[in-house]
């Protein structure tokens, strides 16, 4: 009896010690992300062991909308977040709880991501290019969404008033597709794979791409102010691992041949199981390629564009006047950010 107890005690001690060793070697961190291909530098870095190599034990918490990703990071439920930059994000960041530290998706010329899709009737009636959207009815997800911003910049570029477009906030991508099919709206903005699908079904015509009209910094990696102030070394390790992820992503998905056409090779094939594991709904290989948008391989932000975004949202009354990009941008973790304003 006593022998058994002693043995049990020894086992317990061993187990405890083992646990200790584990947690000594690896620091637990968490990130909030959407289950999209655009989040995949994180998935790739985790699956290829880049976080482990930095001594980080990363837990990825999957969310189904951009808003909760930012909220979870601001409230401390997760240490990091990665998603698109919206009016809601800037209002939250403006309250001082968030810091943008590296780039995620960008609308970069030559890389299809968000398309302007017209319904066939409207197309026939003369809606042939994004500049024709003046005076039309356009479906977006919500007020203050990236789609809303895209239309605002489009209006600026072509010198018409955003007011001349009737915006229909429809909350979700399926609602937008339905509205386009039902000819309730003249056009919608929608991501590449959905756009191709609509065109294949004959329900829509792609009349242009956001990257052709108004390239911009669409998404970012961010963390909480508390993390930057309290666990700076951890943030540095995290960014290093993330940048290995973006580099691997770029090698697999962002290559072009001599003629400037995008090519996908064996590396894209190799990464497919990772996408299959993390991206929801589980994508076909073709879908992954269609959804693989541009992400800066070195995680560099188009900084001026973020200033412009905030200014635009503020001009629309969608972001509070006292929100200041300088306060929520921390450019010290990544080298070589682009177009950094000099004030």
């Amino acid at each position: 009896m006593r022998a058994t107890l002693t043995a049990l005690g020894a086992l317990l001690a061993l187990a405890l010690a083992g646990g200790q060793v584990q947690s000594q070697t690896k620091e637990k961190v968490s990130i909030a992300a959407l289950p999209f291909v655009s989040s995949s530098p994180i998935f790739i870095a985790k699956e290829l062991g880049y976080f482990d190599a930095e001594g980080l034990d990363l837990e990825i918490k999957i969310f189904n909308a951009a808003q909760p990703v930012a909220v979870a990071t601001a409230s401390g439920d997760t240490d990091f977040g990665i998603t698109g930059l919206t009016g809601g994000f800037y209002n939250l960041a403006g309250k001082g709880a968030l810091k943008i530290i590296a780039a995620q998706s960008r609308e970069e010329p030559g890389y299809d991501f968000v398309a302007y899709v017209a319904n066939p009737k409207a197309h026939e009636a003369g809606l042939r290019k994004p500049a024709d959207l003046a005076g039309k009815t356009v479906g977006i997800t919500t007020v203050g969404s990236t789609f809303h911003y895209n239309l605002g910049k489009l209006a600026e570029k072509h010198g018409f008033k955003l007011d001349s477009i009737t915006l229909k906030p429809l909350q979700s991508i399926p609602n937008m597709s339905a509205a386009l099919k039902g000819q309730q709206v003249d056009a919608i903005l929608i991501t590449a794979n959905n756009a191709y699908q609509l065109e294949k079904e004959g329900a829509g015509k792609i009349i242009g791409w956001v990257h052709q009209e108004t390239p911009w910094q669409l998404g970012a990696l961010f963390t909480s102010t508390r993390m930057v102030e309290g666990r700076r070394a951890t943030v540095e390790k995290f960014v290093r691992a993330y940048l290995k992820g973006t580099a691997a992503y770029a090698e697999a998905y962002l290559q072009k041949d001599a003629s400037g056409k995008r090519v996908f090779g064996k590396k894209a094939e190799d990464l497919y199981p990772i996408q299959q594991k993390w991206v929801k709904p589980e994508p076909q290989p073709q879908t992954v390629l269609a959804s693989a948008n541009f992400i800066d391989p070195q995680g560099r932000l188009l900084v001026k564009d973020i200033y412009d975004q905030v200014a635009w949202y503020q001009a629309q009354g969608l972001v509070d006047k006292d929100v200041d990009p300088r306060k929520f941008l921390d450019l010290s973790f990544v080298q070589g950010h682009m177009q950094v304003p000099q004030n």
Partner: peptide, 21 residues
């Protein structure tokens, strides 16, 4: 007012929620 409403208290609340205002 979730669907295609530009004005309305519901649309206003939804937009404020999306904008974290």
């Amino acid at each position: 007012e979730m669907i295609g409403a530009e004005h309305g208290i519901g649309a206003f609340i939804l937009a404020a929620g999306n904008l974290m205002q």
